[in-house]
Design a binder for these strands. Structure first.
Lengths: 226, 226
DNA sequence: AATCGACTGATACAGTGTATTGACCAATAC
DNA sequence: GTATTGGTCAATACACTGTATCAGTCGATT
């Protein structure tokens, strides 16, 4: 019996060639599923069915892998809209959305200066769309919005993680740590804090984020000469 | 010859009793000197001349130690001044100063929700001093300023670290990565970015920080009804 | 005086990033 | 055709990490 066509070896399918892209993709998938701590070179290599040291042919160090992950996500972040205000708002929203999709992004955002191609492309697109803002304002405005978004998203993520870690329930975290705070309040400590918690507005995360961003954009607008 | 006062045994001075404070202090000193990565339970224990496991009598986990470090530094952060604007500005400045003194603070700030006594005291002091701001504005205003400061400080620290890591010199980092960017610019990539880098204003870190904070404060002020 | 209980120090384990080493395999030189 | 060389890849090794466990010691109580 003649074998006309050699069948592919069944148990060892032709392995896709390794590449930076495949490594970064595997790392992102791991981080999405189990958090940034789950991204170890050994685990990434295991996902790709490869020895850990193989990765060093494509990546100099783990930090470089983190940079590549950060830059890869920046491909999703592009501004849209007309006019500086809409552009900055859409940039903020896109960054926030990306951080919600990949909640490990928070730990990398702003963590190191970053000159990856996607990040630079995003930056260039933003600056291009900001033509109607005086040049003197462009730099500080973008810097301020970026700083605000990074800080705001960081806090949101921290709270979401705390909630999630102490049980799936919505206000579980408040149940866990609320009593401690309430006891402090009952003892007369932190009166101003107590008053605000009782009488102040209770805003959703979206409302809080938008309120702060509006402050910032209003302040920028006030600086435009006319 | 009579020894009236027993001299302290020279080679084994009476060991100060271990305490949370001493542990946190040692950890902070380590972090100040060699960065947050240098804070391992083993090293902290070694500084205190103690076995690593001893620490677990005072601390449940390493994360708790980090929380304690964060709260300890918040003792340095207190608002001052009269009127909501000065108060928020002093809060921002104090936080930034603390982050400059302890550049590991950046990695902890906003990293997890935090209810330590010093943090709560600071928060209470801020809210007390914000009596002249409408209650509806207090919560979002404080949240926005905090978010901005966290993000801005994070970026500053990242840049300072990058500079420092590539040599002590001032603009060393620009020397290391500048050529890459310039080559990209020369190839016609990122034209808007290139234009801003060439023609835009070059601000010092202080100026950048203050500019963004002014945007924010102006935007808050615009929301005060009168 | 004996027993018990707390506290301490050592050891152990599973994991990390990365340097080094040794085997193999293809291409070149004689 | 054989020998050598150069490059690639897997495995091992090292110095760490946070923390669980456990055996021993020492003080206090019965």
């Amino acid at each position: 019996m003649v074998v006309w066509e050699r069948p592919e070896p069944p148990d060892r399918p032709v392995p896709a060639p390794l590449s930076r892209e495949r490594i970064v993709g595997a790392a992102i998938r791991l981080a999405d599923a189990d958090g940034l701590d789950a991204v170890s070179l050994r685990k990434v290599a295991a996902v790709l069915d490869v020895g850990p040291m193989r990765l060093y042919g494509y990546i100099a160090t783990k930090d470089e892998l983190l940079d590549l992950m950060l830059d890869a996500v920046h491909a999703e972040v592009r501004p849209s809209g007309d006019g500086w205000r809409e552009v900055l708002r859409s940039l903020a929203a896109a960054t926030r959305r990306a951080a919600h999709r990949h909640d490990w992004l928070t730990d990398l955002l702003g963590g190191r200066p970053h000159l990856g191609p996607n990040t630079l492309t995003t930056g260039d697109a933003v600056l291009t769309a900001l033509a109607d803002l005086p040049l003197d304002l462009v730099v500080p405005a973008v810097a301020a919005v970026n700083a605000y978004v990074i800080g705001a998203v960081r806090k949101e993520t921290a709270e979401r993680r705390a909630e999630r870690s102490s049980g799936m329930d919505k206000g579980e975290w408040q149940v866990a740590h609320g009593p401690y705070l309430l006891r402090q309040f009952a003892e007369g400590k932190y009166p101003a804090l107590s008053r605000v918690v009782h009488d102040g507005p209770h805003l959703t995360p979206d409302e809080t984020f938008d309120a702060g961003l509006d402050f910032l954009l209003d302040g920028i607008a006030a600086r435009i000469p006319r």
